[in-house]
Computed example of a mutant assay.
Amino acid sequence: MAITVEKLKENFAKNGQTLAQWARDNGFKPRDVYLVVGGQRKGNYGKGHEIASKLGLK
C-alpha cells in the first residue's frame, strides 16, 4: 500500500534521516528524489518509478 508524501516526510523526520542521505544510500541523485517527492516527476516509469517504489509512494 502506498503512503502519502506527508507521511513519508514525517517518517524521515522521526528517524532523523534526510531525503538526500536516503538517495545517496540507495544509489540515486538527491535531486531526482526531491523531484519525485515534490511531484515534479510523477514516477510512472524509469528511474522516477524506481524511486517512488522504494520510498513506498507507489
Rank of each mutant, 00 (worst) to 15 (best):
M1L: 08
M1E: 10
A2M: 14
A2W: 12
A2G: 08
I3D: 13
I3M: 15
I3V: 10
I3Q: 15
I3S: 15
T4M: 12
T4I: 12
V5I: 09
V5E: 06
E6D: 15
E6T: 09
E6H: 13
K7W: 04
L8R: 06
L8T: 06
K9C: 09
E10L: 10
N11R: 14
N11T: 11
N11Y: 14
F12V: 01
F12T: 05
F12Y: 06
A13F: 01
A13Y: 05
A13I: 02
K14M: 08
K14L: 12
N15Y: 09
N15G: 10
N15V: 02
N15K: 13
G16Q: 08
G16H: 09
G16F: 05
Q17T: 13
T18Y: 09
L19E: 08
A20D: 14
A20N: 14
A20F: 09
Q21S: 14
W22P: 03
R24G: 00
R24H: 10
R24C: 00
D25L: 10
D25K: 10
D25P: 03
N26W: 00
N26F: 01
N26I: 02
G27S: 06
G27V: 06
F28R: 09
F28H: 11
F28W: 11
K29M: 04
K29C: 03
K29W: 01
K29T: 11
K29F: 04
P30I: 02
P30N: 08
R31L: 07
R31A: 08
R31I: 05
R31S: 09
V33W: 11
Y34K: 04
L35Q: 13
L35I: 01
L35H: 12
V36T: 00
V36D: 01
V36R: 04
G38W: 04
G38R: 02
G38E: 12
G39D: 03
G39P: 01
G39M: 04
G39T: 00
Q40S: 13
R41H: 13
K42G: 05
K42I: 04
K42D: 02
K42Y: 05
G43N: 09
G43R: 00
G43S: 06
N44K: 13
Y45A: 15
Y45D: 13
Y45G: 11
G46C: 06
G46M: 02
K47Y: 05
K47G: 07
K47R: 13
G48C: 04
G48F: 03
G48A: 06
E50A: 14
I51E: 04
I51Y: 03
I51D: 03
A52Q: 12
A52C: 03
A52N: 01
S53G: 00
S53F: 00
S53V: 08
K54I: 02
L55N: 11
L57K: 11
L57Y: 06
K58A: 08
